[in-house]
Design a protein around this nucleic acid. Sequence first.
DNA 1: CGGGCAGAACTAGTATACAAGTCGCTGTCG
DNA 2: CGACAGCGACTTGTATACTAGTTCTGCCCG
Lengths: 241, 241
Amino acid sequence: MIASVVGTNTKKTSRRAVYELLRKRVLTMELPPGAALSENELAAALGVSRTPVRESLILLAEEGLVQVFPQVGSFVSRVDPVKVADAQFLREAVELAALDDLPPVLDPSLVRDLETNLERQRQPGIDLEEFFALDEAFHQGLLRLSGHANAWATVVAAKGHLDRARRLGLYDASSPSAFVLQHTEIFDAATRGDAQLARTAMRTHLRAVFDDVERIRARSPELFSSNSTSVPTRRSIAVWE
Amino acid sequence: MIASVVGTNTKKTSRRAVYELLRKRVLTMELPPGAALSENELAAALGVSRTPVRESLILLAEEGLVQVFPQVGSFVSRVDPVKVADAQFLREAVELAALDDLPPVLDPSLVRDLETNLERQRQPGIDLEEFFALDEAFHQGLLRLSGHANAWATVVAAKGHLDRARRLGLYDASSPSAFVLQHTEIFDAATRGDAQLARTAMRTHLRAVFDDVERIRARSPELFSSNSTSVPTRRSIAVWE
DNA sequence: CGGGCAGAACTAGTATACAAGTCGCTGTCG
DNA sequence: CGACAGCGACTTGTATACTAGTTCTGCCCG
């Protein structure tokens, strides 16, 4: 039972399985900011040795989602507003550049995919996690219109902090309807060929996260990193607080 | 003697030392595209165990600089023109967005740093590696002007393929004078407040790499990945070819 | 009862051992 | 002479052992 946590019949290496599992749990806040991640403990819980766990933590540390303190411990990093802003800038730059680079006539099948995606977003009472996945696919689809879908992978790898902030904002709003309207506006402008309006709408849409950060930080400051150079505390204190 | 290759008195972990060494050697083509990287061999040569070598290769693989084929081998990836274009798009998007976001009045000390940098670039007979470092610092400095220096780290991590292509172009041109002129033009326009000209000049500057790729690929196709899905060959064939 | 020091218990970093798979070479058989 | 089977030398993936360091804990002493 224990050994099956990472997936029994996957062809992929266990490192990849562990990595994807941990990344998902961090991004969904199932592993909250500040949580201690013991290599030994994770290895035992997932039924693998330290090696794949450790390699996964190294990759997550490279993304900024985890902080490793040698001889002390590894911890889920707190959401850093500075990194949120950095990732937002990068993302906005890429998505706006893609809008600028739209071809005169769009690929009809890609446009249809986006329409289908938007329809799904409009489902009443949609699960927030499902909406989040559709949101990601929508933006990736927009990049695809201009032939720059590959850039999305880099953006994804860099926007871990941003995603956690967005998710907090989404849970807080409890309804994604405002985002759906913005998505529709961007899509309509892009397909109509109104690059200027598409740009403006995209900017507004992507910058909404800044409001979320401020609002949620006031209520739940423990999720965010403070200015003080905080030194990690040992497990017995940090683990379930 | 052998054990000192990774650095004797560094405080950093040996993983970091190995990673930085390998990354540098790949980017400078000292380890040419297609070269086989045996974990055991590297470990022996660097005087460390497989562990830090392996973890470094995983990180390099994540950047796309190395390809790992389980049970077959690890190889320096060939320069992929598609990935060069992807990285170029990302980089251009970020640098142009930064130029759009320049404050009305620039930080004088940052401007001075850029001027000093440009002067150094103009040294006659400058070493190409030194120029490359100055080039990197120049572009990072431009980002700093708009307060988005942190985005540079992400760009750097994503532009491994691009950097190798740029380096090939630089070695091919044998003189960086054309680049220096472009840098000067961008800098002058930015400090003069002419955002439009700065954008145009930056675009031209950053897109020069496409010409390099075409020209060098015609002469040295073995450095680039071909369209065919090439399967790696074993060491005994690939190693010193 | 309080303070300080020693050691237990934990951490990650590194080294080594083992497992599982790929592929080239060679010897043998058709 | 050619095809093929099997052995062996390699590869990376995973597990385990050991090292060096940090921190909490609890005993001992004042």
